[in-house]
Simulated assay, not measured.
Amino acid sequence: MEVSVLNINGQETGRKVALNDAIFGIEPNEHVLYLAVKQYLANQRQGTAKSKERSEVSGSTRKLGRQKGGGGARRGDINSPVLVGGGRVFGPKPRDYRQKLNKKVNILARKSALSYMAKENAIIVVEDFTLDAPKTKDFINITKNLKVEGKKTLVVLPVEDKNVYLSARNLKEAQVMGAANINTYKILNSEVLVIAESSLKTIDNILNK
């Protein structure tokens, strides 16, 4: 699959690049995509939710009423879960939600995500670029020139560029990542992929091991 290379002014350079069919031309595996997205979202969870159980609530341990004959549910002290202000039964405790994913599955998921975007014609290849200084206005002009303004856009650079990253940081619909750090969720969560030309080589090296 060949794609025209544009410059940041949105003009064609007259050159074309071939997207590797082993990465951008496979049949997307939906189950693997599901596993990769689930793993990413699970790994974002802090796991710090905590509630006090009966033994942790502050209060007297004196038995409030007789065991039988009261007409209601039996209960012991004021910390009983039956009473307002009592402990919680089987409440959440701090835990680690992180999940593991095999390397081959992870690679297949990223290939599937990139192939899905290629099938949707949602990939734009641009010449390598940088910005002289962090300036959101300059980044917005680039998105206008590429006709992706207002769309969820993932910009993939060969290496992380601080000026480009800071220029896009205040834009809700734009994200900037280095080619080595792209993941399945970020790809699928975007409407358009803007890939710098040199990033294609980095992606090939990572996903075609």
Rank of each mutant, 00 (worst) to 15 (best):
F90V: 09
N102I: 05
Q175I: 10
G86E: 02
K63R: 06
Y165R: 13
Y97V: 05
L131P: 14
N189W: 05
A113L: 09
L154D: 05
N181P: 10
G72S: 02
N20F: 02
R98Y: 01
L41M: 02
K186N: 15
A109W: 06
V164E: 00
E191W: 14
K103V: 08
E149A: 14
S51W: 07
V37Y: 01
V125L: 10
S115F: 05
I23S: 03
I107R: 05
N79Y: 03
L33I: 04
L108M: 03
T136M: 12
D96R: 08
K104M: 03
I78K: 11
E56V: 10
V89C: 14
K63W: 04
K103C: 06
V164N: 00
V194R: 06
L6T: 01
L157Q: 09
V17Q: 04
S190E: 03
D204G: 14
K50A: 08
A168T: 15
E127T: 03
E2N: 13
K38N: 02
K103M: 07
Q39G: 01
D138G: 03
K135F: 05
L114C: 07
N141I: 15
D161Q: 13
M117C: 13
I195T: 09
K137H: 14
G91D: 06
N29W: 07
Q175R: 13
D77Y: 13
D161T: 04
E12Q: 15
T143S: 07
H31V: 07
K100M: 02
P134C: 13
G72P: 00
D138P: 05
A179M: 08
S199M: 07
V156I: 15
F129H: 02
L19S: 09
G76R: 00
N205I: 01
K151L: 07
G71Y: 06
G65M: 13
A122H: 12
Y40T: 09
R15S: 08
S58R: 14
R75E: 05
A36V: 00
G69I: 06
V176A: 08
K152R: 10
S199A: 06
A118W: 06
K38G: 00
D21W: 00
I123E: 06
I8G: 11
V32G: 05
V156K: 08
I78L: 12
L33M: 07
R88S: 07
T136L: 07
I23T: 05
E160C: 12
K93D: 09
Q11I: 10
F24L: 09
S112P: 10
P134T: 15
V125T: 04
Y34W: 13
E27C: 14
E30Q: 11
A22C: 05
N205E: 12
I23W: 03
E30K: 12
L114T: 07
E127N: 02
Y116Q: 12
N141T: 15
N106L: 08
K93W: 03
P92W: 11
V155F: 07
I195L: 09
Y165L: 15
P94R: 14
A174G: 01
V89E: 12
V37D: 09
V126D: 02
A18G: 03
K52M: 13
I182C: 09
D77R: 11
P158Y: 01
T153G: 10
